[in-house]
Design a protein around this nucleic acid. Structure first.
Length: 215
DNA sequence: ATCCCGAGGG
DNA sequence: CCCTCTGGAT
């Protein structure tokens, strides 16, 4: 099976079985999405969703967040990973949005990456979800699932995965493909003991071909 | 013990 | 390239 055929199979499968895949982070606007994605580093969406309501209530917009103090915000973030860094990042992000971007959350990857706590992955999520730009955010799930199936070859960094995926996924399907891969990685192609028995991608999956050949 | 929608710094 | 930050779930 060529790489092109592999992509075609995977896209076709997900279009039939997960046509409406979207993020499980809870948010109402770009500000809330940006906060949620910053908090999501090395943390499950479920746990992020437990912490964000209190944050959004106390800091309803980026202006309010820009005036937050570390001592105020830290307790609201205490229960998720890297609370120290994330508290500083959120306040710094809000202050930079107010000071350097007229209170508007930037709409391009180069600008977003300037914000504290915002790296390439987060910038790709925002520009993709909010601004419909064909950018592929590569998180741990996208990285692992793409490698297992064989959508990527010898990708050692998220950036390599991103570029290889963009080469074969049509622009208009990058957004949905990002969520396909994440949700598949979260519920089927999990890191430990993937549920290959429940996976419809088996005919196109390099990983499955390897483990069955080894029997 | 390993993993979760990573980012920043050296 | 490496390392550190770091809590909760499994």
């Amino acid at each position: 099976m060529t790489k092109k055929e592999r992509f075609a199979f995977v896209i076709s499968y997900f279009e039939q079985h997960a046509p409406n895949a979207e993020t499980e982070l809870i948010y109402d606007n770009p500000y809330q999405l940006l906060v949620a994605v910053i908090l999501s580093a090395q943390c499950t969406d479920k746990r992020v969703n437990l912490t964000t309501p209190a944050i959004f209530e106390r800091y309803p917009d980026v202006e309010a967040l820009s005036h937050a103090t570390f001592e105020e915000l830290f307790p609201l973030i205490r229960s998720i990973s890297y609370p120290n860094n994330k508290t500083k990042h959120l306040i710094g992000m809000a202050q930079m949005v107010i000071d350097d971007f007229n209170g508007e959350i930037p709409a391009t990857v180069p600008e977003l990456i300037k914000l504290p706590g915002v790296g390439r992955k987060t910038a790709n999520v925002i520009t993709s979800v909010v601004h419909q730009q064909p950018n592929m955010a590569v998180d741990t799930h996208v990285f692992r699932v793409s490698a297992r199936i064989g959508l990527t070859t010898n990708a050692k960094t998220p950036l390599q995965t991103e570029l290889q995926l963009l080469k074969y996924i049509p622009k208009e399907k990058v957004y949905i493909a990002h969520h396909w891969l994440i949700l598949h990685g979260r519920y089927i192609c999990i890191a430990r003991n993937p549920k290959c028995g429940e996976c419809g991608l088996r005919p196109a999956c390099k990983y499955y071909q390897q483990i069955t050949k080894a029997q």
